[in-house]
């Protein structure tokens, strides 16, 4: 894969993104609802002893997996969004456009809403679900939906048709969830709604062993497909004339992007907005639509934005956090609009 020609100021953008990621990551480790002095944070990070034993646990078992999750999830959603937007030549496409989230939601709904009598208090129903059950259910739902959509789309040439099929899937699956909600107890619904807020806080080191490799594999696959996505930007006929197996490439891209979207949804809930917004921000920042530049950019930028959202969600001095999805959209939307308005190249340069 020939390297892209990177201009000087674009190097600066990459440098800035890397630095921002480093700073955000450190802040993610250093800040939280419990106030831990900076020197103690350093002590914990360098393997030293903290004054309070709980601080070490908090940094190692709570904040570190949370921050890594945010970076990985942001990167995954940014990349998957970029792939879907290019593949479907649609600036509104996101990683979930094929109905992955709806499928994951159905899986979670089955576990949460049909969990049976848990008892009349809110926490009573939690015990049998836990994060593990939720993740497994979301995984199963997302994978089943993905398999069905891929199976159907293998027979279809038209992109718009695939999009519509994905949309129909979302509706059909969503209606099943609606039926379950109608028959569920208010507390179960509360749990289901809480899942829908999205959160980077549920992933433990144990779960990281699956989450991180899947995201890594998806990113590698995305990087390998960068050049072919570039060819696709010039039109399918052109791509084919260059000897590209368009059908295979399309399936691989959909598989990779959906796997990324699916694994993030399974572990973090349906995290909205990042998948749509990050590619637009990256294009505007780099002034380019070359995927060899955009892919590393969305990976870095996705991580930065996700960490930033997680930091803002944790209101200082408050023990409870804002819903992640509220933060990503509320802060992200004006930023994206501002960036797009200033960008000479417009929203969807191709």
């Amino acid at each position: 894969m020939p390297l892209a020609r990177v201009r000087g100021w674009q190097w600066a953008v990459f440098g800035g993104l890397l630095a921002a990621l480093g700073v955000m990551f450190f802040l993610g480790i250093a800040l939280g609802s419990v106030v831990i002095p900076l020197d103690q944070v350093f002590a914990a990070l360098t393997g030293g002893q903290t004054d309070k034993a709980s601080w070490e646990v908090i940094i190692e078992s709570v904040r570190a997996p949370r921050s890594i999750t945010a970076v990985l999830a942001g990167a995954a959603l940014g990349l998957a969004g970029l792939q879907m937007q290019t593949l479907f030549r649609n600036p509104l496409a996101d990683p979930f456009i094929l109905g992955i989230t709806a499928g994951a939601g159905l899986g979670v709904a089955v576990v949460v809403l049909l969990a049976g009598a848990g008892g009349p208090t809110f926490t009573a129903g939690l015990g049998n679900l836990g994060n593990v059950g939720i993740v497994a259910a979301a995984f199963a739902g997302a994978a089943a939906t993905l398999a069905l959509v891929l199976l159907l789309s293998a027979r279809i040439r038209n992109y718009v048709t695939i999009l519509i099929i994905g949309l129909m899937f979302s509706y059909a699956v969503g209606s099943l969830v609606t039926v379950m909600i109608a028959a569920a107890d208010a507390r179960q619904i509360e749990l289901f709604v809480a899942w829908g807020f999205g959160s980077f806080r549920g992933v433990t080191w144990q779960e990281m062993r699956i989450f991180a490799p899947v995201v890594g594999a998806g990113i590698v696959l995305g990087a390998l497909l960068a050049k072919q996505l570039n060819a696709l930007l010039l039109g399918e006929a052109y791509a084919r004339s260059m000897g590209l197996n368009v059908k295979r490439m399309r399936l691989l891209t959909m598989l990779g992007a959906s796997a990324l979207g699916g694994v993030v949804t399974a572990y973090c809930g349906p995290v909205a907005f990042l998948g749509v917004a990050t590619p637009h921000l990256a294009r505007a920042l780099l002034g380019s639509s070359d995927h060899r530049l955009l892919i590393p950019a969305v990976i870095l930028l996705g991580g930065v934005v996700a960490l930033f959202a997680e930091l803002v969600a944790q209101l200082p001095g408050q023990t409870a956090a804002l819903p992640l999805n509220a933060v990503t959209s509320l802060i992200g939307a004006p930023v994206v609009i501002a960036v797009l308005m200033r960008s000479r190249r417009g929203a969807f340069a191709s």
């Binding site: 939280g32 609802s33 709980s54 601080w55 646990v57 806080r201 944790q314 023990t319």
Partner: peptide, 16 residues
């Protein structure tokens, strides 16, 4: 009612 906090605050308060 119930308190909504996060696990790190709970660890700090109730870890031992």
């Amino acid at each position: 009612g119930s308190i909504e906090t996060d696990i790190e605050t709970q660890l700090e308060r109730a870890g031992d």
